[in-house]
Simulated assay, not measured.
Amino acid sequence: MNQTFTTARALAAIIEVIGWLIVTLAIGGAALMLNTGNSPPGASTLVVLMSGAAGAAIGLGLVLAAQLVQAQVATAINTSQILEHVANLKTQTGHPPMEPPISAPNHTPLTARPEPYAAKPQAEGRFLRMVKGYELHKYSDGISVDGEGRYPTILAAEKRAAELAAGE
């Protein structure tokens, strides 16, 4: 099932050429109108520039659409070639399919240990970080600041550490 997508490729190429023609005509037409001074009555330079830019944008949109179609077709062709190659590999090697890997032996999880950088390793709770010289520890019911209180969020605990550091 080797498809070449000739119709899609031909239409995309035609649309791309039309898009580039529109871009060229829009920019060229705007430049010609500005240089010759034969702009329609009541039309300002800005209107001429905007019409040229709009035409160029439409043309570039067509070019974009055409190139996206071409990319999609190339992807489809490459995918079919890859599938054919993989199918040929299986028939050529004659090897049985791979066995699932042997699972690694079960390891027991590491036990809780104090953080090596904690100033007070005997403190309960998991050490989170230092804030303004105060340790933040995570407990099941909140976060403590140097063993004081339980705060519901890390932001509240950091705010309290900042207050303690300021001497409040």
Rank of each mutant, 00 (worst) to 15 (best):
G125V: 01
E148D: 12
A53G: 10
E16H: 06
G125Q: 00
A166V: 01
L49H: 08
L64C: 12
S144L: 05
A31N: 14
V86E: 11
G42A: 11
Q81L: 07
L128F: 09
T108H: 09
K120V: 01
L25N: 08
L49W: 11
S80R: 11
H95Q: 12
T24Q: 00
I15E: 12
K132W: 07
A104G: 14
H85T: 14
L49P: 04
G149L: 03
T91F: 11
G94L: 10
S39R: 15
T75G: 13
H137I: 10
L164G: 08
G42C: 09
E158S: 13
E148F: 10
Q3T: 09
R160M: 02
A8R: 14
Q122R: 10
K159T: 12
A26F: 01
G28N: 03
A156N: 10
M98E: 10
E115V: 13
E168P: 08
T24M: 14
E84D: 15
A119L: 02
V69D: 10
H85N: 05
M33P: 08
G94H: 07
S144F: 06
K138C: 03
T6D: 13
F127L: 08
W20Y: 08
L25V: 00
S103L: 11
G61H: 06
A71M: 14
G133C: 11
D146Y: 02
P40E: 00
T24E: 10
A157Q: 03
G42D: 04
R9F: 00
A66Y: 03
T6V: 14
N2R: 09
H107G: 04
K138S: 01
I143L: 00
V47Q: 15
G28M: 02
L46K: 05
A112T: 03
G125Y: 03
V86S: 11
A12S: 08
I154K: 06
V17S: 06
P114R: 13
A43G: 04
D141N: 00
A161Y: 11
A65P: 03
T24C: 06
G42E: 09
A161M: 05
G19Q: 09
P114V: 04
T108R: 12
I18A: 12
L34Y: 09
L68D: 12
A12D: 08
P121W: 04
A8E: 13
Q72R: 14
A76F: 07
G29I: 07
L21Q: 03
G125K: 02
E115R: 09
W20M: 11
W20I: 02
